[in-house]
């Protein structure tokens, strides 16, 4: 059996890439589908919806040399929601990412490119809220260097283009430049990481004035990657815009937990955020920075080899893309997930 034949169930993309003479490859994927109930609420109006959600992803990676890895990771998702008296609302999302990582004795560097696309059906009646159509293209690069033995410094830069579909949202079209510096150090059984980030966003579609935002963020997080898996985080961010309406300060605390319960496991993913605009003027301005709080609780049970049932409950309270207009969403879903294990090959 040829190598390509062994990997053929995975994806056509995988087969094409197998033509390259690579030293080692791995391919894995997952698929999930299930019903979903969501109840949206905004300005004292509530709308329950019922529908389904499906998603699939692949990770293909190869090691052309002993210290270099290239990877391609496509992922797509689809959601359909029906609500009384409204046509079916659909959402199609896709994410394609490619990366190159190289390691040496002391350093690691990486380059990556990513394309994200989302398409939402034309009519999304309030209070139902889904992010509008959008395309994003990103390129990033970074390096990690150990310093003074026990500290690791990671530094990265990136640039991105964000383009919205609906004409009324195109004032949020923008070009972004970003840079981060992170220091990591072991703390107790986990890892502490301090991050300082800075960036700039230039909005090309602003109808009234030139908009240019400067952004800063400070973040501290601690993670324990064991059983249980625990991560906690505290952060603050500042946005200073050439238009005062968009100046804000934000704080956020987040936690991520995954723990075993017998043969099953539970996951909790939650964040509490607060954001305040410095200017109380134009409260109907469109904003690209949403701040919200959410709690997602999930129970995962294996039901067969590679097949899992996820029961999920969620609560979200977030700013919609209109400044200071909050919406709330509660939901529940039962998702059946299948994963096929990594297929590996060597020449």
């Amino acid at each position: 059996m040829t190598r390509a034949a062994r990997l053929s169930p995975a994806a056509t993309a995988g087969l094409l890439l197998h033509a390259a003479p690579l030293a080692a490859q791995a391919l894995r994927g997952d698929f999930s589908i299930g019903p979903e109930w969501l109840r949206f609420e905004s300005r004292a109006v509530a709308q329950p919806t019922f529908g389904g959600k499906a998603s699939a992803g692949l990770t293909w990676a190869a090691r052309p040399g002993s210290s270099t890895v290239i990877a391609v990771e496509p992922r797509i998702g689809f959601r359909a929601l029906t609500a009384e008296g409204t046509p079916t609302i659909t959402e199609l999302v896709g994410d394609l990412r490619a990366s190159l990582t190289a390691t040496s004795e002391r350093t690691r560097w990486w380059l990556s490119a990513e394309q994200r696309v989302r398409a939402v059906s034309d009519s999304v009646p309030a209070p139902v809220y889904l992010d509008p159509d959008r395309r994003e293209t990103w390129a990033r690069g970074g390096i990690a260097i150990p310093i003074s033995g026990q500290w690791l410094l990671e530094s990265s830069v990136g640039a991105g283009l964000v383009r919205y579909g609906p004409a009324s949202w195109q004032q949020l079209d923008r070009t972004e430049l970003i840079g981060t510096a992170k220091l990591s150090h072991a703390l107790g059984p986990g890892l502490l990481r301090l991050t300082l980030g800075a960036g700039n966003a230039s909005f090309s579609g602003a109808p009234f004035d030139t908009r240019d935002d400067g952004r800063w963020a400070l973040n501290a997080e601690w993670a324990l990657r064991g059983s249980p898996f625990v991560q906690v985080e505290l952060g603050a961010a500042w946005n200073s815009s050439s238009i005062e309406t968009f100046d804000y300060r934000a704080m956020r605390a987040a936690v991520l937990v995954s723990a075993s319960v017998g043969r099953s496991s539970i996951q909790l993913y939650s964040a509490l955020a607060a954001k305040s605009y410095r200017d109380t003027g134009d409260t109907l301005a469109l904003v690209d920075q949403e701040t919200g709080s959410f709690v997602i609780a999930q129970a995962t049970s294996p039901i067969a080899s590679g097949t899992f049932l996820h029961l999920r409950a969620e609560w979200v309270r977030s700013e919609s893309t209109i400044r200071s207009r909050l919406y709330q969403r509660v939901g529940a879903s039962a998702v059946l997930g299948y994963r096929w294990p990594a297929r590996r090959s060597s020449p």
């Binding site: 985080e233 952060g235 603050a236 704080m251 949403e290 919200g292």
Partner: peptide, 9 residues
């Protein structure tokens, strides 16, 4: 995890 924003951020 995003420090400055919550859901959808």
């Amino acid at each position: 995890l995003a420090p400055d924003r919550g859901a959808r951020a």
